[in-house]
């Protein structure tokens, strides 16, 4: 199977005939942090991915901002 990873985009070849959850485990990817896409559909962890399949593990976690420091910055609207 071909596994497409993002951020940065790269491809990994793996043996097929395994469930999604095993693929994630082998790649050390937490299920909570990705969408698993096959074609134009989402697939669940119990789905078997075959040799000929291509799946994308699309990361969902974004970030970069922490709460502001100092008093009343809720409106750092200050």
């Amino acid at each position: 199977m071909k596994v497409i990873l993002r951020n940065p985009r790269r491809e990994v070849e793996m043996a097929g005939g395994r469930r999604v959850k095993e693929v994630l485990r082998e790649l050390d990817i937490l299920p909570e942090t990705v969408l698993v896409i096959r074609g134009d559909e989402l697939i669940t962890p119990d789905q078997v991915v075959r040799d000929a399949d291509t799946i994308e593990l699309r990361p969902v976690m974004s970030g970069g901002s922490s709460p502001p420091n100092g008093p009343a910055s809720r409106a750092r609207v200050e």
């Binding site: 993002r6 951020n7 937490l30 909570e32 942090t33 699309r58 970030g63 970069g64």
Partner: peptide, 21 residues
């Protein structure tokens, strides 16, 4: 889908990983 280039290594992402575990 691409992340903000400045997000790499951000504390918030590290915290999200901890919580996801």
């Amino acid at each position: 889908v691409e992340e903000c280039p400045f997000a790499k290594g951000a504390t918030s992402i590290a915290h999200k990983e901890i919580l996801s575990r």
